[in-house]
Design a protein around this nucleic acid. Structure first.
Lengths: 262, 262
DNA sequence: GTCGAGTGTTCGTTATATTCGAACATCTCC
DNA sequence: GGAGATGTTCGAATATAACGAACACTCGAC
């Protein structure tokens, strides 16, 4: 593993919402590396526009990152249609809608659409990265990976327990993912946040690979009595986004109770 | 300059709208470097999530880029208010609105809002990077940099002539930027694309530094007769976005001076 | 105004980590 | 089945990033 690349990422990862601006000395202190090393590194990163210099010789993230991110987004097929369908979901149900992809064994949230008087959901936002095993979208995405790979990565990285409902046992998770695969959708039963439930369904691309997941996130007391309606709604949404990608999914898994073989 | 970082950027820059997926051999051939070097490099980048592996061992840009880009955007103060005001501009005038920042001597477009029956503007999109000297937003942004710096960079990188109206002479550009500074806004008189005009105004942050620019882009035949109205509109928009950033700009440059023809 | 502690940057040498070609394991398509 | 792709692994040679010290500079306290 390239030491330079590793260091670059450690530097970039320091920049956060709370702390969007760093000086060379601060970074060097935080990473316990010589000032000179960091100075040269950050200077190089600024030359490449991965960082940008502020007036006072300090640094912020650079616009090159936005550029690259934008070509990534613009070449992500389902995004436009997903956005359209998600807006419709918010209008119809007045609840928060999420769109996420899988990265390793973590869910990266691409979009978060909220109704106007929104229930505050703290932990998610576009660009957030959350452990996949505890959320609706995450479980949908994990369910369509090779279990071998998932199990290995989870054991390496640990299986954080976000609430008392979070599944932290590998065997239990395996069963849960099997269930998700069979029915074609996943519930989050207050596994990420107490008081918050969620239904999620997979988005397929033209070669029938699961590429993303959408979900409705709803306070538990409102969710439980109308579970079936929400489930039907998110399945329909996911199906429409998938179909827009090119292939008719006549037997969209879960929608007509057909099970997709693996 | 770190050779590794340089190589990383050359690799990342290959990924484009037209070609969002690359294999190791393709990259190696394109960059004229040994396969093994590229293989290890791209493998490292994938480990860091700057790239992601597709099913067939090829690579796409990784979601880490989106993550970083998102924290950059979320820590960019003017963006939310800018978006609001821009939407209003589109509704009111039915024309395309751009928001851009300066990166070196190039303008990076953060946002492009179009009316429903849009005049097709090919070269801009969110995430696009264009030479600053030829556009309205670009000239506004350059006008508020040190001329020394701008001149040096332009001489290094060359001053591309996008249309017959593009300013390609450094002295002429210096005068133009002086004029832009004085009046507080810039015109693009078919300097980027023939047939397309533009008015742009600067966005200030709380310490009165120019951090971005907004513009109205309008077909020449529609623009010329109503130049003054458009100018007043974009100045008002820029002022409102700036004021939202914290400081009252009682004497927002150009706002209370008379609008002059070019 | 002056000092001192902070900042970011530059430099030269050393050792380390990247590089590269060849060999390897797969895969795809005639 | 084989020819030509692909991506990956390996070890040795070398170029490259790391480091500490010295530098120039800014800022605030006194």
């Amino acid at each position: 593993m390239s030491r330079t690349i590793n260091k670059v990422m450690r530097v970039l990862d320091l920049f956060s919402l709370e702390r969007p601006e760093w000086g060379v000395s601060e970074v060097a202190r935080d990473l316990k590396l010589p000032k000179s090393t960091i100075s040269e590194l950050m200077s190089d990163l600024a030359d490449q526009r991965l960082l940008s210099r502020t007036v006072k010789g300090r640094y912020r993230l650079g616009w090159k990152l936005f550029e690259l991110s934008q070509t990534l987004l613009d070449t992500t097929g389902f995004r436009v249609e997903a956005r359209r369908v998600m807006e419709e979901l918010v209008r119809t149900w007045g609840e928060t809608v999420h769109l996420a992809v899988l990265d390793g064994v973590q869910a990266v949230y691409l979009e978060k659409l909220q109704p106007i008087p929104a229930v505050k959901i703290r932990i998610t936002r576009a660009g957030a990265r959350l452990p996949a095993h505890s959320s609706g979208v995450g479980k949908v995405l994990l369910a369509h990976c090779e279990w071998e790979y998932v199990a290995e990565r989870l054991e390496d990285q640990g299986i954080p327990e976000l609430t008392e409902n979070t599944i932290t046992d590998l065997d239990v998770l395996a069963e849960e993912l099997e269930r998700v695969r069979e029915r074609g959708y996943a519930y989050d039963n207050e596994e990420t946040t107490i008081g918050l439930c969620c239904v999620a369904a997979p988005i397929y691309d033209s070669i029938r690979t699961v590429v993303a997941a959408v979900s409705l996130s709803i306070p538990a007391y409102r969710f439980c009595p109308r579970k079936e309606e929400y489930t039907a709604a998110i399945l329909d949404a996911a199906r429409r986004i998938s179909e827009d990608a090119g292939v008719k999914l006549k037997e969209y898994p879960g929608y007509e109770t057909e099970v997709q073989g693996t």
